[in-house]
């Protein structure tokens, strides 16, 4: 039961982390390696608003998510747009921007365990004999709600449908009057906002460090590779597979195996089925 509940929490965390990355890739076929940086950016921004500017918690969260989506859109509009269509350059450019953002925080002295966000609700409950804190239950709730709303958004709204259209055939979408650059800016802004949502619900579990950014990026890439880039069901499948494997490895082998499992899965997937469990991207092995 322990394994089931914590596996579930871990899986939802991974799905949350990966959904922004997957959305951006799905829309603009762009592997956004600045994803982890945007994630911790929201963490630090929320912390700053909360503790330095004295804005209340909800306001801080809202403000930093808005800011990160503007930054995400701007990254595309001013940098990535120039290397669009060249996968290697896209990865190098976005990774450099990501590293620049993360190391900027380190340089400004954001080091150590001092940076923490308070949980939304303190305390814990017992479910079937397992003690679990409210924050983790909130993560499950928000994670599932976000998946559902993303699905509704991409299937039933004009903007959502156009995002999927661009992902499938850019030129055919242009013929329907969709502006691919504008849509990609929207996509990246939304992907960044998703990273932000993930950050504010997950970060209260621990402290905000620069290293978190690198780990989040690795996790997001792992989930997307295992599940298959460009597939929503793949993201869910990848998140659950990885989420439970990590918990099982922690329980039976040792906690330091968590990261090993991630990398092992990436390698196994690339060897056995490079397009991922449910992916349709044949050229994936060249891209990541």
């Amino acid at each position: 039961m322990n394994i089931f509940i914590f596996g579930l929490v871990n899986s939802v965390i991974l799905a949350l982390i990966a959904s922004g990355f997957a959305l951006v890739y799905g829309v603009s076929r762009l592997a956004n390696f600045a994803h982890g940086a945007l994630y911790i950016l929201v963490g630090f921004a929320t912390w700053l608003f909360l503790n330095r500017l004295g804005i209340n918690y909800i306001g801080s969260i809202f403000l930093s998510i808005v800011i990160v989506s503007i930054i995400g859109g701007a990254i595309y509009r001013f940098f990535l747009i120039r290397v669009k269509g060249m996968p290697a350059s896209e990865i190098i450019a976005s990774l450099s921007i990501g590293i620049a953002i993360m190391e900027l925080f380190r340089w400004r002295g954001f080091i150590g365990e001092a940076y923490m966000l308070p949980p939304f609700v303190t305390g814990s409950v017992s479910i079937a004999g397992v003690m679990i804190d409210w924050q983790r239950l909130i993560i499950i709730g928000i994670g599932l709600a976000m998946m559902l709303s993303l699905w509704l958004f991409t299937h039933h709204t004009k903007v959502g449908l156009s995002l999927r259209a661009i992902a499938q055939d850019k030129r055919a979408s242009m013929m329907s009057g969709i502006d691919p650059d504008r849509t990609a800016v929207i996509g990246l802004a939304m992907g960044s906002a998703l990273a932000g949502v993930a950050a504010v619900v997950i970060l209260p579990l621990g402290s905000i460090t620069v290293e978190t950014g690198y780990m989040v990026l690795t996790d997001a890439i792992a989930v997307c590779i295992i599940g298959g880039l460009g597939s929503w069901m793949g993201v869910l499948a990848g998140a659950f597979l990885l989420g439970f494997s990590q918990i099982l490895a922690t329980a039976f082998i040792g906690p330091h195996w968590q990261m090993v499992v991630v990398l092992l899965f990436i390698i196994l997937t690339l060897i056995l089925k490079p397009s991922g469990l449910l992916g349709r991207q044949k050229e994936l092995e060249e891209r990541v």
Binding site: H155, K158, L161, R164, A165, Q168, D169, M175, S176
Partner: peptide, 25 residues
């Protein structure tokens, strides 16, 4: 409005979604 050679339907979207995308504007 161009209806292109080889049709270029959005393969992963349903018929109705394809039409809705066409009606973007």
């Amino acid at each position: 409005v161009l209806c292109p050679e080889r049709r270029r339907i959005f393969p992963e979207s349903s018929t109705l979604e394809n039409l809705k995308i066409g009606g973007y504007l």
